[in-house]
């Protein structure tokens, strides 16, 4: 924990002068994850590389929720897995509480894992069907000895179950005896067993029905208030992300294209991709609907992303400079938050 405040200099800090300086928990700098495409017998890969995450930087503060939005294949899940070293990053730095996780040996990394947890999308696939809820929750305690001493296990298990809205009696049941929403609660309880500082939520509610989704969102907010942990919240549902996040990062083809507070992203988005994305969301109230920007064509292959700005092939503002010069993620003109667009500007309605 010590020294975390000393590492405040960062390209994607997103803090404006005069704002309260908060303590960063996680600083991701120039993170890169490339997947080499292996050639098969019939299909030589030719040394091609999928640039799943390409030079991503951001800061997450203590107690904060950073939402990451973007469409399938934009790299948001790869980003979260690279941060946790569930997949080994190709380059960059991931500073957690002041310490670069990527420099740690496997053994040292394992010791840090109790602070870094993840809740997965599919509550049907992420729980071992042969273990009872109690076994699922306690397994981490037998690995990280001393976090919860054995005589405390029963009490703490019951406490965790109550915290996520289940009953202490549920401890001896198996995952198949629960509904999807309840299983996701078990997944959340499991993520909390070691008192983590950071929980990555990778599409935690997208497999759930609307009425159940709302229950889980309330639960996640409640837990954060009580425990003060930080979330990285990945989702493709933009209303869900707005609801839970303090700040939001927008990804397109492996790059961050815009990052800012939820008001900045949702009320004054300045990147043409963010604007198109937000305008695509169906809205209940007719008076709240703006003009829809329908994107033409499809996302280009990450094997051969466009030169310059990766969004330029579908962008209504694209000009010659966009093909030759890659826009840096920075504040521009009247736009107070970070955008990676040469022509970043709030939308004119």
């Amino acid at each position: 924990m010590a020294g975390a405040a000393g590492t405040a200099r960062h390209p994607a800090q997103g803090e404006r002068a005069g704002a309260v300086l908060r303590e960063p928990l996680l600083e991701v700098e120039h993170l890169v994850k490339h997947y080499p495409v292996r050639g098969g017998l019939l299909r030589p890969g030719g040394g091609k590389v999928v640039r799943a995450v390409d030079d991503v930087s951001f800061v997450l503060h203590r107690g904060e929720t950073l939402g990451i939005v973007g469409e399938s294949g934009c790299g948001k899940s790869t980003l979260s897995r690279a941060i946790l070293r569930l997949t080994e990053p190709t380059g960059g730095r991931v500073r957690f509480a002041g310490e670069d996780l990527l420099q740690l040996s496997r053994r040292e990394m394992r010791a840090r894992r109790r602070h870094l947890q993840i809740v997965f999308q599919d509550p049907f696939a992420s729980l071992n069907p042969r273990m009872t809820v109690a076994q699922i929750i306690r397994e981490p305690w037998s690995i990280f000895k001393g976090v919860v001493p054995r005589p405390e296990w029963d009490r703490r298990t019951a406490e965790l179950l109550v915290q996520v809205g289940l009953s202490p009696d549920d401890a001896h049941r198996y995952p198949y005896q629960f509904s999807g929403g309840q299983r996701q609660r078990i997944g959340i309880a499991r993520a909390l067993t070691l008192n983590p500082k950071l929980v990555v939520c990778d599409e935690p509610v997208s497999a759930l029905d609307v009425s159940i989704q709302a229950q889980v969102l309330n639960l996640l907010a409640e837990i954060q208030e009580k425990l003060g942990l930080s979330y990285i919240f990945i989702a493709h549902d933009l209303s869900v992300v707005r609801h839970i996040s303090d700040r939001i990062a927008v990804m397109y083809l492996g790059k961050l294209v815009e990052i800012g507070t939820w008001q900045e992203i949702y009320e004054t988005p300045a990147h043409p991709y963010t604007q198109a994305l937000l305008s695509s969301v169906p809205v209940i109230e007719p008076e709240a609907r703006g003009e829809r920007i329908i994107l033409k064509g499809e996302v280009p292959s990450p094997l051969a992303p466009p030169s310059g700005c990766r969004f330029r092939t579908r962008c209504r503002k694209a000009a010659a400079v966009c093909a030759t010069e890659e826009p840096v993620l920075e504040t521009r003109g009247a736009v107070g938050h970070l955008t990676a667009c040469h022509f970043a500007a709030p939308r004119e309605y």
Binding site: V210, Q213, A214, L217, N218, S239, H243, W262
Partner: peptide
């Protein structure tokens, strides 16, 4: 249950229980 803009920073009014 739908997270709308005006519910930001508030608890969603949920349907209790499950279908």
């Amino acid at each position: 249950s739908m997270p709308r803009a005006e519910m930001k920073n508030r608890r969603l009014v949920v349907i209790e229980g499950a279908p």
